[in-house]
Amino acid sequence: MSKHKYWNQLRLIIPIIFGAGLYAFGLLYFIIPNTLMEGGVTGITVLLNYAFGISPSLSTLILNIPLFLIGLKLLGKRQMIYTGVGIASLTFFLWLFERMIKMGWIGTFQTKNDYILAALYAGVTLGTGLGIVFRFGGTTGGSDIIARILHLKFGWSMGQIMLVIDIAIIGSSLFFISKELVLYTLVTVYIASKLIDFIQDGAYSGKAFTIISDHAGEIAEIIMKELDRGVTLIPAIGAYSKHAKEIAYCVVSRQEIRRVQMIVRSVDPRAFMIINEVNDVHGEGFREDS
């Protein structure tokens, strides 16, 4: 493997390891000490800890090994390599933090009066950790592998499969924890899901303008001059009028939305504007990958 390829692999693996470590920390520092829950196969490890006192690191390893081997056979080595990194990292950090907590090197956040604080911070740490893992192509195994396999075999939606698994596992926790704690868990899951989406979509987001106007060229010139943003002119024909038109397309930062609207309205008050959310924008003026 060349140095360049080795470095590219490392740039993906290191964040996955870090994200798995942060996720493990949130699980042991906020979730388990406050008898909250988590979805997926990790939720099963939490339930096994509550019901039988089984170490989360041990149950995570035992549950994920057969799933990983099945995934390796059905999904292939290429898809599973970063999942293997995620599973190994999660197992290691769970074991490490368990030892550190047991030896008193880390004190857990345990509360009897302010579960909302525990739920919020659990959501932040779990969501950030998983978001980093997912963003760099890894997973922590478990329900993600199950969802991929069922999607491959039956064409079912991965999102729906994972939602059903989460509902089943969190619902079954009612046998072990109170319904109030399950409701706090839903706060954690919601916060985590929002952070996962934000990190996966990327902080480099903005708005895409599609501007249909008889003066699209003039509008494009002003946007390029005043905002220093690239604009693409797309030839089009009006379906009703049969007249040739141009469509101006550009992507700007959130701070520039109002300025673009003002430019368009000043040139052509009758212009038709479509504004779409765009995420993870790459290129000049946004993020440029090395």
Rank of each mutant, 00 (worst) to 15 (best):
R254A: 15
E180G: 09
G230H: 03
G171R: 03
E180P: 04
C250V: 10
Y249S: 14
R254N: 14
C250Y: 13
Y240T: 08
A168F: 09
G202R: 03
Y240N: 12
S193Q: 06
I161W: 00
I247E: 13
H215I: 03
L233N: 08
L181N: 11
L186A: 15
Y190F: 11
A220H: 02
D214P: 14
G131M: 02
L227W: 06
A239W: 13
A236W: 06
T128G: 08
K153F: 11
G155E: 02
G202V: 01
L186P: 07
E180C: 08
S157D: 14
R135M: 09
S157F: 10
I170Q: 03
R135Y: 04
R135H: 07
A248S: 12
R148E: 08
L227M: 09
I247K: 09
K153Q: 06
L126D: 00
V251W: 06
S178Q: 10
E226Q: 14
L163G: 13
I237A: 08
A168S: 09
M224V: 14
I223S: 02
G230E: 04
R148H: 11
I222P: 00
T125P: 05
A248K: 03
I191Q: 05
G155A: 10
Q200Y: 01
F209E: 05
A203D: 13
A248H: 02
A192Y: 02
Y240L: 15
I212E: 10
T210M: 14
L183S: 10
E218N: 12
L186I: 14
T188K: 02
T140C: 07
I165C: 03
H151P: 05
V182L: 04
A244P: 12
F134Q: 09
I132W: 05
F136W: 09
D228F: 08
A192P: 00
I219Y: 07
K242H: 15
I132A: 00
H243W: 13
W156R: 07
L130R: 01
L181E: 11
T125L: 15
G238D: 11
D228E: 15
V252M: 12
T139F: 03
S241R: 11
I211K: 06
I146F: 12
I196N: 01
L181T: 08
T139W: 01
Y204W: 11
P235L: 14
G141P: 00
I219Q: 10
I169G: 01
G137P: 03
R135S: 09
S143C: 08
H151N: 14
G131Q: 01
T128F: 03
L195V: 08
L181D: 13
K225G: 11
E221A: 14
I199W: 04
S205H: 03
L181R: 06
Q255N: 10
I170T: 02
S253W: 03
L174A: 08
K242A: 13
E246I: 14
A239G: 12
I146R: 02
G131F: 00
T185G: 12
S173W: 01
S157P: 00
V231T: 06
S178G: 13
M162P: 06
V251R: 01
T210W: 13
S157A: 11
F209M: 08
K194W: 02
D214E: 13
G217N: 07
L174C: 04
L150M: 13
G138C: 07
I234H: 15
I167K: 00
R254V: 12
